[in-house]
Design a protein around this nucleic acid. Structure first.
Length: 207
DNA sequence: AGCCAGGCCAAGC
DNA sequence: GCTTGGCATGGC
């Protein structure tokens, strides 16, 4: 289904490269991306930013500190991004994994409590530069509305549907997902703003 | 003032 | 196997 790749091209043309996971000055990209991926679960990025700033101020945006730091203190630092009781534990376990294993695989990440498929794939793609396409609720909403998929498609089905339709290229994977998020936040919102849509291929709009 | 945000897990059919 | 409720803050 080349139409999928056409969507990517049009999004890219309209928005340009997103260069996701803005890394704060002087921070380790792998740590920041991995922590950000956990913190942003069902949470807006603006809230995640506050937590990241807190961690940086506390000199704790690194796996060593995250393992050692008192759990309650960590909860307090990441409080702005919500679900802090579970996310604090997840961050500790994830950090332990990174410190104990050289080559992190998808199954390692999925074994961490609090890390599901989407978070695992985000870390694999954006932190570890491995070709795993990230699908989220936005991705599903967009392609469902365009009539490409059924509403109740599973994560695995949606992921393979997309990867079978686009080149296996890490940079395309990174940009496409980021562009989908951008587009869905701006236009393909819960109540879609189809009037402002620029995609030529959205032949099946939902108003 | 409610709804929503870059999910995940455990419990219950 | 699929559905549901709980988790929590901040922005609009």
């Amino acid at each position: 289904m080349m139409l999928i790749f056409q969507v990517y091209k049009e999004l890219l043309k309209y928005y340009g490269y997103q260069n996701w996971w803005p890394v704060h000055e002087g921070q380790n990209r792998i740590v920041e991306v991995s922590v950000g991926a956990v913190l942003t679960q069902n949470t807006s990025w603006s809230n995640v930013e506050k937590s990241l700033e807190n961690l940086i101020s506390a000199n704790c945006l690194n796996f060593e500190c995250l393992v050692d730091i008192d759990l309650e203190v960590l909860k307090n630092l990441i409080k702005p991004s919500g679900f802090y009781n579970q996310k604090a534990k997840t961050l500790k376990e994830l950090s332990k994994l990174f410190l104990s294993k050289e080559n992190i695989e998808r199954e390692d990440l999925l074994a961490v409590k609090g890390i599901g498929k989407e978070t695992a794939d985000s870390i694999l793609l954006y932190a570890l530069d491995k070709p795993y396409f990230v699908t989220d609720s936005y991705t599903k909403r967009l392609f469902y509305r365009m009539g490409f998929i059924k509403e109740k498609i599973s994560y695995d089905e949606l992921q393979s549907f997309i990867t079978e339709s686009i080149p296996k290229d890490i940079d395309i994977y990174k940009e496409f997902h980021a562009l989908i998020v951008k587009y869905c936040k701006e236009l393909c919102t819960k109540k879609p703003k189809c009037g402002g849509c620029f995609l030529s291929c959205n032949f099946k709009k939902v108003v």
